[in-house]
Simulated scan of single mutants.
Amino acid sequence: MRGHIIIAAMLALASPAVAQPANLSSMDRDKDGRVSRAEFRAELVSGSMKFDKNGDGRVIKAELPGVTRLPGAKGVVDRIYKITDADGDGALSSNEFAVRAEVRFKEIDADRDGFLSQAEIKSAPRQR
């Protein structure tokens, strides 16, 4: 189950076909019924970095064979790299994931209160 949440979180960073990230309960670490910017960023960064098989602090496409075999996933992975790989080195660092998580958080936080509610998560806008 955790693996599916991580994949959903990673895909939520970039996929135009994914309308929402993982559900609130999976990201609400302090269980206060809402997701803070820090909780959102931590979940997406830690979840994404679990794909770093060789432990070098970067995720390269070669570390994603299980993900890229899913139907339609190769295009999604390519999009993740295109919009997240800021330095163009072909690898995604935790800093690059954190920057993308900040952008995505702002897109989802409709009422601009600095927290995500279940309603905001469910009605998250598609990626730009």
Rank of each mutant, 00 (worst) to 15 (best):
Q127V: 12
S15T: 03
A110N: 08
V103L: 11
P16V: 05
E107R: 09
I60K: 14
L11E: 11
S94D: 15
N23C: 08
A86R: 15
I80Y: 03
T68F: 05
A73E: 04
E63G: 10
I83H: 03
S26V: 11
A62R: 10
A124R: 00
S48G: 15
A17K: 11
I121M: 04
S93T: 15
L44T: 03
M1W: 07
V67G: 04
A86M: 11
G75A: 07
M27F: 00
F97K: 00
R41V: 11
M10L: 15
L44M: 14
I60G: 14
R128S: 13
N23W: 05
F40T: 02
A22H: 01
R69Q: 15
N23M: 07
S15V: 02
G55Q: 11
R128A: 13
D113Y: 06
N54Q: 13
S48P: 10
S94F: 07
T84N: 05
S117H: 03
L64M: 14
D85P: 06
I6K: 12
G72F: 01
S25D: 07
L64S: 06
G90F: 06
S46R: 15
L24R: 09
D113Q: 06
T84G: 15
L70H: 08
G55R: 05
K61W: 07
G55F: 12
A73L: 08
